[in-house]
Amino acid sequence: MPDPAGRRASDDRRRRWRTACDGLAFLAVLVGSGWLLYAGASELQYNWQWYRVPQYLGRFEGGEFRAGPLLRGLGVTLELTGWSLLLTVVFGLAAALSQRSASWAGHALARVYVEIVRNTPMLVQLYLVYFVLAPILGMDRFVAAVLALALFEGAFAAEIFRAGIEAIPRGQWEAADALGLSRYAVYRRVILPQAVRLVLPPLTGLAVSLIKHSALVSVIAVADLTTEGRNLIADTFMTFELWFTVAALYLALTTSLSMLASWLERRLPLRGVGNG
């Protein structure tokens, strides 16, 4: 709640005092929940073995670094996300453009695609691709995972692209028409280059959600970070340590991506958009 305007300067010290109190209270809550976790775990006779975790990340053997299962899983997650993102952009752009095209078939197809994907769970789509489509077409599980992820995120990317294209001022279209550019050239040379800047921030958000959704492919046993974590837990029973490590790795990945996105946003100023 915003404070009523005109707070006097003499309140400053009191405010600082309150801030410190609040910070301490928050710390107390953190410590308290940590203690609850610890107490709960010791009630289950849980044996904490944090010292065993680093070897699963990687270790030095003869001066050479060898990645452990968790880091290898992280690599697979990145690979999976990269390919899916590429395909997501293709699906999304195709859906957005055909929704904007004069063709009613394209319009209907894009609409059906978006509605089906948005109104069914990701998990069920993954099962459909993996259990129905993959055996018919002879895809392996990695390809099936990439396809399922890309189909899912593509429907959301379509909305992002559509919004980005529609945000380009009418004047740009009209000017391009006046110059006699073909429809392809208008998109290629005028609209899409400007839309890229608008589309970038929501697209990074999409990439973050793609990383998170990629954890789902552990269900079909693609060897990603979550799968490696689950396998290790089954072997070692270090449930808490490994799940926390896995969650921290995902957190590091998504936060660094968000930071990269805001850096990119600052580097690429909005040019020309909004004053056309």
């Binding site: 998170k212 959704h213 990629s214 954890a215 979550t226 974590g229 449930t239 969650a247």
Partner: peptide, 17 residues
């Protein structure tokens, strides 16, 4: 910022246990 799946596994372990 954590995958739904990971979140659900961690919390389920807590809640049911």
């Amino acid at each position: 910022n954590t995958p739904p799946l990971v979140f659900i596994f961690i919390f389920y372990f807590f809640l049911s246990g």
